[in-house]
């Protein structure tokens, strides 16, 4: 009997822990967002974060998108040729990249790169008292450290995904025309014939949400890290893992909302 009660108590404690963590996360997010609308503003910090999250992530996102488009064209050809449906490759590549692969892969790559960097930077600032020092210098750490990163995440990811969309389609085009013998003009016509503005816009909306999630998880985990180098490492890992899982889970939910009729 005691064993069963112990198990129930452990499950209850775990559930309470998860609810408390979610509560903290929501309060943290609301505080970060609320500072967007209240002065003072830090445009220089938003610019710096845009460079960190956006510009410096461009190479890794671009390469990921390019090779994904290339692989997608190759795999689609292998499968579709069995049903004489090779002509659908262009549509499959462009719709897969703009709706799904562009935002998700860019999100995962930026999470691994910029999200981890954010958590490590804020975590180090926390354990070396730099965040407390901000408070003693008449500066809100949330406003100074978190809000610019949240804003930059929401702005940078759609820009990165726009580039990823173009390069992903280009990757498919390169493989289709150079390796698989497609006519370039026919491939391009087929690409744009089946593409709707909504496909691209929905992908960009997903990207904005993912950008927010990456910045939020990076800042949240870094901001509350403790225990020196080990704590910073744990915060960095937690930031990447939680952001990646949330990106994949939210991708399903957003796809359900945006695409399924």
């Amino acid at each position: 009997m005691n064993f069963i009660l112990g198990v129930i108590a452990a499950i209850g404690a775990a559930c309470l822990g998860v609810v408390a963590l979610l509560g903290e996360l929501v309060i943290f997010a609301v505080a970060g967002i609320s500072h967007i609308f209240r002065p003072p503003f830090y445009p220089r910090l938003v610019g710096r974060s845009l460079m960190e999250i956006g510009f410096f992530s461009l190479p890794v996102v671009a390469l990921t998108a390019l090779f994904t488009g290339m692989v997608l064209a190759l795999q689609s050809y292998t499968g579709f040729s069995r049903f004489n449906a090779e002509s659908a490759i262009a549509s499959v590549v462009v719709l897969s990249v703009t709706r799904e692969l562009g935002p998700v892969l860019a999100g995962l790559m930026v999470s691994g790169r910029a999200g981890a960097a954010m958590a490590a930077e804020l975590g180090t600032m926390r354990v070396t008292d730099q965040i407390d020092a901000l408070s003693t210098l008449s500066t809100s750490p949330m406003k100074y450290l978190v809000t610019p990163r949240l804003l930059a995440g929401v702005i940078a990811l759609p820009l990165l995904v726009a580039v990823a969309d173009i390069l992903g389609v280009m990757g498919g085009f390169i493989v289709a025309t150079w390796k698989l013998g497609f006519n370039p003009n026919v491939y391009l016509i087929s690409t744009f014939a089946n593409l709707r503005a909504g496909d691209v816009v929905s992908g960009l909306i997903k990207a904005a949400v993912f950008g927010f999630i990456i910045a939020l998880m990076g800042c949240f985990n870094g901001y509350r890290s403790k225990g020196g180098a080990e704590g910073v490492g744990a915060a960095t890992t937690a930031a990447v893992v939680s952001a990646s899982i949330l990106i994949l889970a939210l991708d399903y939910i957003l796809t359900q909302i945006l695409f399924v009729k």
Partner: peptide
């Protein structure tokens, strides 16, 4: 009230960036 306090932290806590 707290804005009139200046603080020297144990490890300096200078902003690396």
């Amino acid at each position: 009230l707290r804005a009139q306090i200046g603080m020297l932290f144990q490890n300096g806590a200078l902003f690396d960036s």
